[in-house]
Simulated assay, not measured.
Amino acid sequence: MDWQTHARRLADEVVRPESRWHHPLATTPRHVFVPRWWADGDQGWELRDGLADPEAWMRAVYSDQTLVTRLGPLHADDAEADATTTAGKPTSSSTLPGLVVTMYRHAVIADDSRTLVTTGTGYGTALLCRRLGEERVTSVDVDAHLVKVAGERLDSIGLHPHLAACDITGELPGEYDRIVATVSVRPVPASWLRALRPGGRLVTTIAGTGLILTANKTEDGGATGRIEWDRAGFMRTRHGNDYEYPTDDVWETLAQDEAEETFTSRYPLLYPPDAWDVMSMLELQLPGIDYRLSQDGDTRTVGLRYPDGSWARATATGFLEPPVVHQGGPRRLWSALERIRNRLNREGALPVYGARVTITPDGVTTLNRGSWACTL
């Protein structure tokens, strides 16, 4: 199987030939790390087996796309052949190579940087080993099974970084010049600051947002940095075998709940995950909102649900008609969304991207830009 040709093509698509990441991309066999994956099909999630269709396998793994490898607690490696399911949401994946490289570039990795990364399938770890040498790379994941399998696949291509199964939000197994997390956190764990060497740098994303946070360790044990202008979204850190999501019954109940407030919006219907700056601003104010989008013919409904029982649903027919909004509970979720859209309409931009970041030694993280500030 001529995977090298595909890998070189991927490298040419992602970076320029003179980039230090071109050689790792061109010489790392991504297919080794993703032999099976879940594809989002018309009938739900459909299992793809690389060996069953080698040409499709090469096209998928050597394209710049994310491949889901775990739904809920079910690894694609362990699923029955031709499996199809509508249950579960992604809990692990092989991140698109271009975004992995973007995160590494934001880390400003030097040739001698001892670096901690998150494991997942192990592909991103392999790229870093090719770039730095395996002795400078530590890779961790909360899922011991993922760490074991990734270790076996790294070993099969001659790479032996330090691997550990641990909760990345807890104590880390060493000291590092760089920490790069392709999972999202809120706030930045204080353990990262303790594990960073003087002058070290961390790169992560804020949970529930499209915000990349970079920060350099300061002499007082804290860190300062900024929210980058690039966008990225990663799965949240998890502490168990799966995430907790509202069930379909909860959403069906929400769709029938009698509103405490009803009004017609002044704006077209928006599904916040489609507008990362708006979603990020809302998530910073109200962390942990769940979203649901449903469609019946030309009629679309967007649902929002907050852990304290607050809810909102907005329904519109067509794309020009303003939606009718129903909301209830302790907080007015759609009204909070409207205020953000008012600000965007008034000022032309939101202050989240480009914001300065200050992290205290105990992990209290504050963003500010101009007169706007938010503490996580």
Rank of each mutant, 00 (worst) to 15 (best):
G297F: 11
I157M: 09
H6K: 15
L132T: 03
Y243Q: 07
I359Q: 03
I227P: 02
A190I: 06
I109V: 15
A275L: 13
P54S: 04
A259C: 06
W311H: 09
L193A: 02
S19C: 03
V302W: 12
F319W: 10
A336Y: 11
E80C: 01
E13K: 15
R30G: 06
H6A: 15
A87S: 13
H160A: 13
L320C: 03
C129G: 07
F33D: 03
V34A: 05
T69F: 04
N345H: 15
R153M: 04
Y176P: 00
V180T: 07
D298H: 13
T182S: 11
L159A: 05
D177Y: 05
E152K: 15
R114N: 07
Y243G: 02
I359T: 04
Y62W: 10
T218L: 00
T66N: 07
A316V: 10
R130V: 00
V34K: 04
R153C: 05
L67E: 05
R331E: 13
I206S: 01
D2E: 13
M235D: 02
R114V: 12
I168Q: 08
T169R: 15
Q65I: 15
V15D: 03
I168R: 04
T301I: 09
G309S: 03
T84D: 00
K148E: 08
P323I: 11
R20Q: 11
V108I: 04
D230A: 15
A355M: 11
H6R: 15
L202E: 03
V183I: 14
T169S: 14
C166E: 00
G210K: 13
L213P: 00
E152M: 12
A355H: 01
R238E: 05
S19H: 10
P361Y: 08
G240R: 15
L293K: 14
E219F: 03
R356E: 14
E228K: 08
R339D: 11
E55G: 02
T5I: 14
W229L: 12
P330N: 08
L282T: 06
L127M: 09
S93T: 15
P161L: 03
N342M: 12
A349Y: 13
Q65Y: 01
T358F: 01
L320F: 12
T315W: 03
H31N: 08
G72D: 10
G98W: 09
L320V: 14
I359A: 01
L202K: 12
R343F: 07
L284K: 02
I289V: 13
A181R: 11
A11C: 09
A26W: 06
A52H: 04
D308L: 09
Q327D: 02
T247D: 06
R236C: 07
S310D: 03
H162V: 11
H6E: 14
P351S: 03
G309L: 07
I227N: 07
V324W: 00
S184C: 05
A7I: 09
L25K: 08
R197V: 13
L128E: 08
K89R: 15
R231P: 00
N342V: 15
L71H: 02
G348K: 05
D82N: 13
L344P: 01
V188K: 02
Q327E: 14
E55W: 08
L127G: 07
T214K: 00
R292L: 10
A76T: 05
D362L: 05
